[in-house]
Design a protein around this nucleic acid. Sequence first.
DNA 1: ATCGATTTGTTCGTATGTATT
DNA 2: CAATACATACGAACAAATCGA
Lengths: 237, 237
Amino acid sequence: MIPKMKKVNLSTQLIETITGLIESGEWAPGIKLPNEIELAASFNVSRNIMRESLKILENFGILESRAGIGTTISQTAMSSIYNMRFFNQLKNDSSIELIMETRLTIEPALAAYAAKRISDEECEQLRRKFSAPTDGNFTRRDDFDFHIFVSKCSRSTIMENLLFTMLSQLRNSEYTQFDVHADSQAVASSYRSHKGIAEAIVSHDAEAARALMAAHLKTRMEVISSSYSVEVHRKIK
Amino acid sequence: MIPKMKKVNLSTQLIETITGLIESGEWAPGIKLPNEIELAASFNVSRNIMRESLKILENFGILESRAGIGTTISQTAMSSIYNMRFFNQLKNDSSIELIMETRLTIEPALAAYAAKRISDEECEQLRRKFSAPTDGNFTRRDDFDFHIFVSKCSRSTIMENLLFTMLSQLRNSEYTQFDVHADSQAVASSYRSHKGIAEAIVSHDAEAARALMAAHLKTRMEVISSSYSVEVHRKIK
DNA sequence: ATCGATTTGTTCGTATGTATT
DNA sequence: CAATACATACGAACAAATCGA
């Protein structure tokens, strides 16, 4: 098995070089960069490659380009670089433990906010989900949908988006094959947990929703870590 | 006052068009795209513009390009698109209320994890911070540093990075001028809170650290919302 | 208000390296 | 090994935006 090195292309190298220059303080926020042609020359690449890199950095909010003016280093460059690193970490290096730990922190709060802020229409939707007889047809997709629905009712969009991103990671990860729902007993247990949480939310009982969600996630974490302690330590994707 | 419309350039439009095609299902994950020349022709742009857009989408993990093979839509395209949207929201549209609500959820947990996982060396650093006489010289920067330091000790890097990003937002926002630290009484109060949290952490008392951090943030939120109820509703930046 | 200088935005043509067959 | 298909990269040019004289 070959390590499968990915050859980094020029623009990726350039991006790292430039962010390094900014972090080291050599390129300070606010200063104006040389024009693209000079930049390309000094980095010894073509203007097109230079532009690709600048575009990506602009996309992250690190640089700002305006026609006729030039390119400047954003005043918020430092925080944008952290933004970028956060994004890349979330995309590539999130272990299942980290994700579950984060879920355990934010989801009980999301359930509590949902109980306080859910609309009447959303209550109706939530009731319908659990009135229909779902005998054995409870899938992992239903699981994701439930957690996402609750988070939407919370109106706390930062955490909602974070949860969505993490759940998408889990959905795409190797971990899915070890999902507790493979076990039919766990399926039924999970379904009951969801039903309990939903009831707490529609009756606007924030503290009950919080406690039930915390208990639900703790149970799932224990099942995962006890059954698959080895595999779980592997990184996602 | 002119609305200051920024002309969207071609690659930005292209990115939106392509993500739209993927979200609508027209371009499904896994399928191979036509080569760059054909793509550029069908979108009626030049190859360089096409490449700039593809590069950015590749950077977000939505597309995958390999020389000699072609460009394919990533299997994780859907979650990557959400990732991208989350990132953009966090970067541009986070209100102070949302940020503070999120901080109130994650920071007590981070303090608790820090109490459990802090190293001896970090304990020493934390003690030093509060043994020195900081008579009146407690700045907003110290405030940020304290919260960041605690989050680093938690070893929960997802929440740590999220917090860092949010604090950077606050630091760069208009809100800084309304900061509670303008009030010297609040400065002293905030410093005492930090000291108490630090003591709980170095003595590995997780629940005390959690409770003190929660109380600290709640106090600050109340000060902010009572004193500056109008301004606070404005978006950041 | 026009003109010219500067700089990014955009396009085309061409050459090179890499992977598949 | 050769042919093919493709992304990667480079260079030169024109268009459009901005600013200052």
